[in-house]
Design a protein around this nucleic acid. Structure first.
Lengths: 357, 357
DNA sequence: TCCCTGCGGGAAAGGGCTTTCTCTGCGGTA
DNA sequence: TACCGCAGAGAAAGCCCTTTCCCGCAGGGA
C-alpha cells in the first residue's frame, strides 16, 4: 500500500504539505504543489490509512450501534432512523448484531469503545438479569466517564438518555381491543420471559383484562423465541392445550406471522374463528393475508430520536423520551364467534385499509 | 481513556510487558507481573485502542462487505452466510449499504481499503454502465495489487473470484412453469433495467417463452424499483395497459408481494384469475397468502461460498461458482383460467406445502 | 535601511500500540 | 573461577498520519 510519504516523495514535497492538500486543510498551499500532490495521489491510487488517521486526529466521529439483529425488520426500521441522522451529520455507523446474546453485547461494548466511537446506542429489549445489568452498566459508566455518549432504545437498564416505546400501553391497547370485541379466552404468544419487552407488553395486556374483570392465567401464555418460528410453535402449543381460544395476542409481528401460519395449517379461519393481534407494525404486516391488526410503534422515529439525543448537546439530567404506541386495525381481529360468545359482541365493522384508534 | 502506559505505570512494569500480558504473547512473563498487569487493567477499565493496534500490527484481519441494503431479506440472507464463515475464523465484518448507488459503492471500496480490510466482498447486481464498471475494476485492481482479496456475488464486472446465482436458468424455470400451465398473456414486473440481475432473469424468461413459440413483448414488461412498492406500482401499470394478463412474473419476491397487494386491492383472485411468480424465495414467501410460488436461490450458501473463496487459498486463475436456481411450487401459480384458455392447461395439482421441480 | 508581518513550506513531535533488539542477572559447565 | 547461555524484563524503533511549531523570505511601513 502506498503511504503518505510515498506520495510526498513522488510529488517532491514534504508529508506535511501532502497531508494538507489531501485533507483540504485551511493552511494555504500554492496551486503548483497542490497539482503535483494530486497527481501523485492519482498515480499511486493512494488511500489514507484510516487507522493512522484516527490515531493522529484526536477527535472521534463514528457512532457504535448494538442491536439484536439488523435483518429483523424491527431493528431494520430503527436502524434506518439512526442512519438517517448519522448520515446527515457525516457520521459513520458501526453496527453490531448481538443476536440476543448478553455476553456478546458486553463484548461489543468493549469492541466499540476500542474503536473510539464518539457515542454508543443500544437498541432492543433489556434483560431481567441482575448480574448482567450491573456489568453492562459498569461498562457503560466507564465509557461515559471518558467522554462517551450513550443512549438506549427500549431498555431500562441504563440510567442515562433513553428512547422508550410505550410497550405497556401498547399491550393495554391490544387487550382493550380484544375485550371490546367480546373475547374472553385469550392466549398469548410471548417472547422470552427474560426480556423486559415481553414483560412490559404482558403487563399492559394484563391490566386491560383485569379492568374488564377478565384474567390472563399463566397457562394461556407460551414463551418462545421472538421470531416467526417461535410464534408458530407457541401457537401450536397454545391451541393444543386450550382449543377454546378465540383470540391470540402475539407479542411481536414476526410471531404473529408464525401464528397465522399455524392457524392456516390447522384450517382455522382468521378472524372468523379466531382473532390474531400483532405488535410493532413492521412493514410486512399490511401485506400478509388477512392483513395484520397490530400495535404500531414509531420505529424509524425511535432511531431518529436516539441518534439526535446522542449527537446533540449533553443534558445535565437524563432524558427519557417515551414514544406512543397506537392500535392499527386491519383484518385479523374480529368479534368473538357467535357460538362461543358470552355477551353480545360489538357490531361488525368495515375492514380493508387501516383504521387507527 | 486509559492507555497502555497508564496500565504499565500502575502495574510498575514496562509497556512492553503489559502488552505481552494483555495479548497473551508467546514470550513468557512471570506470574507475579502478570497478576499486577491484569489487576491494573481491571481497575482502569482499560480497553486497547483498536486503531493503534491495527496500525502497529501489520496483519489485517477484518473483511469488508458491500451490499445494496442489509435490511432487504435477499441481502440479509447472504450476509448471514458471510457472517457464519467470518465468525468461525474470528474475522470482523464491516458491512456497508450502497443503497444501489454506484457512486456510494465506489466510495465504500475506498473507505474499506482505507480501513485495511484483508478482503472485500461485493454482493448484489452489477450495472449496465461501462464507465462505472471500468472505474470499479480499476479500484479493485489497485486493491488486489496490494495483496487484497476480492470476490463478487451475483455480478459480472469483476474478473476475479465470483459466486453467481444462476439467474438466467431461474428465469427460464419461471417461464417454463407458466407455459406448462397454459399461460400466454404473461406480464413481467421487473427491477431497474440498468441492473444485470434484471436483464439476466429476463433473458432466461424470454428464452423459455421463445422455445414455446410465445413472445415477451416489451409492452408487457414494466421496470420499477426492486422493492414492494415498485412491484405494486408496476403491477398496476401492467394491468391498466393489458387487463387480459393471466400471469405475472415478478423479478424478485419483494416485488411479488407488492404485486399481490395490488391484485388484492383490485379484487383479482390469485391464482384463479391470475397467477403470480416470484424470485429469490426469501423467508417471507411461504407466509404470505396464498403462499408464493417462486424461484429459489441458495442465498445463505452464496454468502458462505464467497467468504470461503476470499479467506481460502488464492487460486492462480479466477474461480466462478455458479449456484443453481430451483423452482418452488406453492400457491400463487395455477393453470390459466378456462375462459381465456387457448389450449388445455395441465391438470390441477395439489397445493399446500412446497413441491420443487 | 531596518524591522515587522505574514505567507508558504518543512521539521518534528506526538497518537497508542507491537515487536525487535538489548541488557541484566542467574545457573550451569569446563 | 571464568565463561556461556538463557530467561525475563525494558528500551526503543517503528506503524502512518496530523498538526504544531519554526524558519526563510518577500513586501510594506517607519
Amino acid at each position: 500500500m502506498a503511504t503518505l510519504s510515498d506520495v510526498a516523495r513522488r510529488a517532491g514535497v514534504s508529508p506535511a504539505t501532502a497531508s494538507r492538500v489531501i485533507n483540504g486543510s485551511s493552511k494555504p498551499v500554492t496551486d503548483e504543489l497542490r497539482e503535483r500532490v494530486l497527481a501523485a495521489v492519482a498515480e499511486l491510487q493512494y488511500v489514507p490509512n484510516a487507522h493512522a488517521q484516527l490515531l493522529a486526529r484526536s477527535h472521534r466521529s463514528a457512532v457504535g450501534v448494538i442491536v439484536h439483529d439488523v435483518s429483523d425488520p424491527y431493528f431494520a426500521e430503527i436502524t434506518r432512523g439512526l442512519q438517517r441522522v448519522a448520515t446527515d451529520q457525516g457520521r459513520l455507523l458501526m453496527i453490531c448484531n448481538s443476536y440476543r446474546d448478553p455476553d456478546r453485547e458486553l463484548e461489543y461494548v468493549e469492541l466499540l469503545r476500542g474503536h473510539q466511537v464518539a457515542a454508543l446506542i443500544l437498541a432492543g429489549s433489556g434483560y431481567h438479569d441482575e448480574a448482567f445489568t450491573r456489568q453492562l452498566n459498569e461498562k457503560l459508566a466507564a465509557y461515559e466517564a471518558t467522554g462517551g455518549r450513550v443512549a438506549v432504545i427500549g431498555r431500562h437498564e441504563h440510567s442515562g438518555d433513553a428512547v422508550m416505546p410505550d410497550n405497556r400501553t401498547g399491550g393495554y391497547l391490544a387487550g382493550r381491543e380484544l375485550c371490546g370485541l367480546g373475547h374472553r379466552a385469550i392466549g398469548v404468544v410471548a417472547g422470552p420471559r427474560i426480556l423486559t419487552t415481553t414483560t412490559d407488553r404482558l403487563a399492559g395486556l394484563r391490566q386491560a383484562l383485569t379492568e374488564q374483570d377478565r384474567k390472563l392465567p399463566e397457562r394461556r401464555i407460551r414463551y418462545a423465541e421472538f421470531d416467526r418460528d417461535g410464534g408458530a410453535e407457541a401457537t401450536a402449543r397454545l391451541l393444543d392445550a386450550d382449543p377454546e381460544l378465540t383470540a391470540i395476542v402475539a407479542l411481536n409481528d414476526s410471531m404473529a406471522i408464525g401464528a397465522l401460519a399455524t392457524l392456516r395449517a390447522r384450517g382455522m379461519a382468521v378472524p372468523q374463528q379466531i382473532s390474531v393481534l400483532g405488535f410493532d407494525d413492521m412493514p410486512i404486516a399490511r401485506d400478509v393475508t388477512p392483513a395484520l391488526t397490530t400495535v404500531r410503534l414509531p420505529l424509524v422515529d425511535m432511531g431518529v430520536r436516539a441518534m439526535s439525543l446522542v449527537l446533540g448537546v449533553e443534558a445535565p439530567t437524563p432524558r427519557v423520551e417515551v414514544l406512543p404506541a397506537e392500535l392499527v386495525r386491519r383484518d385479523t381481529a374480529g368479534p368473538v364467534p357467535r357460538s362461543t360468545r358470552a355477551t353480545a359482541g360489538s357490531a361488525p365493522r368495515a375492514r380493508r385499509g387501516d383504521s387507527r384508534s
